[in-house]
Nucleic acid binder design. Structure first.
Lengths: 336, 336
DNA sequence: GTGAAAGCGCTAACAC
DNA sequence: GTGTTAGCGCTTTCAC
């Protein structure tokens, strides 16, 4: 069982050599049009499917790219993957998915056990606390290109694709200020992640520009989940001086915070402004709807895959860093 | 560049034959313990990584399984994938992701272009209107096992994993009845999809059991999106006799319907009950929170992957149909 | 217990 | 323009 048609079968059937078949199938070199047509016809008739293992082995390249990321069960990442898929599919590449659950150990184990020899490249978004990214450097040293997206490794020189975290945050905070909020807190992501730091910096610089002093108590670093947002908000409400607006590192935390505010019967918008980052569909489901900085998730997926394919195509491709702008979407959570 | 350590390198280094290295590495046949240890040590030292293309070619099996599904950008499917990943990862399998965007053409094209020769099996959830599932039958005929989950192909004999759509719907509708709702509408999914039909049947039978006559106007079939839920609800509100409860085929449609009701200032729960199916996280974000039949998405992923691995392991594995129960979660949208 | 050699399906010189 | 042949890295008889 499980015998597939091979080029040998086609060759035998047509009384020609395998190399001619191979050439005809790939439409390369000069093959007599007649011969090629015959081959193609026979291939179709026998329902020939190329064996990627064999091709990969012979050419030293599979058509697989690995995607390694923390989660897929959220809007942002699943949309990025869809974008990646789109480009990969066009280019005839398969994407092999690896989910780290945001665990550095798991990430390390995945990378170390990667079938690196049958992988043309890697697309990765690192897990929260994997400060040590040597494992990716090693992969690159072996000649397998890596492109980072969203959560990028700061000290590895390769192409990276991300949203404009700094300016997005800056703009977001300026918007809150323009709405009249004066005591703006920031519930941030885990420390150590580049994009988290950038959003933080955008927040800080926006305050600075408008001569608003920074209050340590109003900056809380924790996880990315909705639950973290809820508890961060509780913590803010405990402050001696309670803020009048919250800028969250992402929508899920913003939503968590809103849930807390609603429980405490604090009027969102009027008494306390809330601003997110992502444009998760949930931001239009919650009431009041959430003002947010929309991230170009789909394009980040597309772009990073396009870059990876370029790296794969030419080994000397010069690394590029692409920064995609966000888009502020004003909704009810910042209406006073 | 891009030379990886091969078993040949190890053999040369140790002055033994490649076959011995191969045997030692796989810990099979009788290999002298000493020899094996030496091989293992050398493999580690040279950072040896097996070449899956070569293994696959020689053994006639890769370690890849393809996952084909309509979308990944929603809670249900992304959770299923996470479950699949979990099991695949344990078993040393890679998952190759294919997204059909719920387009039958795309699905067909994906399946026809599948690197079937370097795939050990398929895990699939069919697209809405792919009534013709011959392409999957063909794959199976070629000796590649296929397991369906959630959206299963009715007329293909192989293992299938799904939630208990019929009883879930039945129970959901009985619950609505027990809450005192008497005029229960159903906003359903596209016709022709098995699980949609089953939920519909559960709805019909529950009404029947309680001697509630079925009203054609109160049953609307459309897409799965939130937008469809919104417009379905508008349509229901147009009915001469407006229903007092809506049972939606999934949470997204239920949420869409709620948005419509809110726009029309209809008190959800009190004036009109709403019940969903899935337990999407959004169901706790919306206000009032949404009563729903929780689906065991993660377990569906796990189970279907486990079954597929069994099919792969033995070609004569007898097909199993696994039906996982749901769990009713009562929330505010059904409180009168 | 280990080695030699053939072969998995395909590609790529190298001949002709 | 086409055929011959070696080889990609690994597994697996078949000897010894």
């Amino acid at each position: 069982m499980k015998h597939f048609t091979t080029i040998k079968d086609i060759a035998r059937e047509l009384n020609i050599s395998v190399s001619t078949v191979s050439r005809a199938l790939r439409d390369t070199y000069d093959v007599n049009k007649e011969t090629r047509d015959k081959v193609l016809a026979m291939a179709a008739e026998l329902n020939y499917k190329p064996n990627f293992n064999a091709t990969g082995l012979a050419k030293g390249s599979s058509h697989n790219i690995a995607v390694i990321l923390p989660f897929i069960t959220n809007y942002y990442f699943s949309t990025v993957i869809t974008g990646i898929q789109e480009v990969a599919y066009q280019g005839g590449y398969n994407i092999v998915l690896h989910v780290t659950n945001d665990s550095p150990e798991r990430e390390l184990s995945i990378v170390n056990n990667l079938p690196i020899t049958s992988l043309d490249g890697l697309l990765v978004s690192i897990s929260s606390s994997s400060d040590a990214c040597n494992h990716f450097q090693e992969v690159m040293n072996m000649g397998v290109p890596v492109v980072f997206f969203d959560r990028v490794a700061a000290n590895i020189e390769t192409s990276k694709v991300m949203q404009d975290d700094y300016n997005g945050a800056f703009e977001a905070v300026e918007y809150l200020i323009s709405c009249g909020y004066k005591k703006i807190a920031h519930i941030a992501g885990p420390e150590g992640l580049t994009f988290t730091q950038r959003r933080m910096q955008g927040y800080l610089d926006a305050l600075k520009k408008h001569d608003i002093p920074v209050k340590e108590d109003w900056i809380i670093c924790s996880g990315f989940s909705q639950e973290c947002g809820e508890s961060d908000a509780y913590q803010l409400l405990e402050c001696a001086d309670v803020p009048d607006a919250i800028f969250a590192v992402n929508d899920r935390k913003a939503i968590g915070a809103m849930l807390t505010l609603k429980k405490r019967n604090i009027k969102i918008g009027k008494e306390m402004g809330v601003m997110g980052f992502t444009n998760d569909p949930a931001s239009t489901i919650i009431s009041p709807t959430l003002t947010t900085m929309a991230e170009p998730a789909f394009d980040i997926g597309r772009k990073s895959c396009e870059l990876l394919l370029k790296h794969i195509a030419k080994s000397y491709f010069h690394p590029e860093e692409i920064v995609l702008p966000g888009r502020l979407i004003a909704r009810e959570s910042t209406m006073r």
